[in-house]
């Protein structure tokens, strides 16, 4: 166990050192959510005039939506990093060392979690500048950040699993293109759930993206619904752990095909 923790630490450290050497990538990481905030904020500005949003500012409603969409869309590419490790030969080199297998996957997920956190903080700041209100205060914002990180972990671990199993860029691109928009729009990211057709809101209740939104919105309310935060939060945590365990399991199949 201590080996897993210390190896996770060193392997994460290895990835972060590479990340800070690529400032351009970090900038892109921050620009992307800003564009979404701007586009959706202007395009849908007037939908709050419909009943069901529970707020008069679409920007207030939109912030958690852009946060989860960002979390999903950046984490779902994590598998590309796995492919790169395999293609560069670093994966095989690492696998012949005593490194804890879990640490390789943990590090990949933690790097993503860190960049998700940075992205969420940027969105919160941008929203603040644009005049958004955060009635839930710092605690509400913290819950939203944690929910986004957990949601991101589900998708980065999933992407790592796909990367290790199929080892093809095209498959990852295909899956991501197919999933991102349905997952986002089958949730309350941009549209109040009460305004969805009932079959849609039924599907949405199984959608982890929606769990994250439920938890975030419940915590960011003036009168937070902690029960909701707890239930949705534990679903997210459960799914994230499950995906992570699955991703570590892929080393077995990798060993058969290498």
């Amino acid at each position: 166990m201590t080996t897993l923790v210390s190896h996770t630490w060193w392997m994460t450290n290895r990835r972060l050192k590479v990340l800070v050497k690529q400032p351009a990538f970090v900038v892109i990481l921050l620009i992307q959510p800003a564009i979404w905030l701007f586009l959706f904020g202007n395009l849908f500005r007037r939908v709050v005039e419909l009943p069901g949003f529970g707020t008069t500012s679409y920007l207030d409603y939109l912030i958690p939506g852009v946060v989860v969409m960002t979390a999903v869309s950046s984490n779902m590419w994590a598998g590309m990093g796995m492919l790169e490790e395999i293609e560069r030969g670093t994966m095989n080199r690492l696998l012949t060392t005593p490194v804890a297998r879990g640490a390789i996957m943990n590090a990949a997920v933690l790097e993503q979690a860190l960049s998700t956190t940075v992205q969420v903080l940027a969105i919160i700041l941008l929203g603040q500048i644009a005049g958004a209100d955060y009635p839930g205060g710092l605690l509400g914002l913290a819950v939203m950040t944690v929910a986004a990180v957990l949601l991101g972990t589900i998708f980065s671990a999933f992407s790592n699993t796909v990367g290790m199993l199929v080892r093809q860029r095209e498959t990852i691109i295909g899956i991501n293109t197919m999933l991102l928009l349905p997952l986002t729009f089958l949730s309350s990211a941009f549209m109040a759930e009460s305004l969805m057709p009932s079959w849609m809101s039924t599907i949405a209740s199984f959608n982890p993206v929606n769990w994250a939104l439920d938890a975030a919105r419940a915590a960011m309310n003036e009168t937070p619904d902690w029960g909701m935060v707890l239930v949705r939060g534990s679903w997210l945590l459960g799914a994230a752990v499950l995906m992570l365990v699955l991703s570590v399991g892929t080393f077995r199949s990798y060993q058969k095909s290498v």
């Binding site: 290895r14 050192k17 590479v18 690529q22 560069r88 030969g89 670093t90 994966m91 060392t97």
Partner: peptide
């Protein structure tokens, strides 16, 4: 193990490559 294909971290320095390898052992 020295594999047929190099397994170095291209974006890390030589010293960092060696240090991490040592830590994993």
């Amino acid at each position: 193990v020295v594999a047929q294909r190099s397994g170095l971290d291209p974006m890390a320095s030589g010293r960092d490559n060696l240090t991490l390898q040592g830590r994993l052992f």
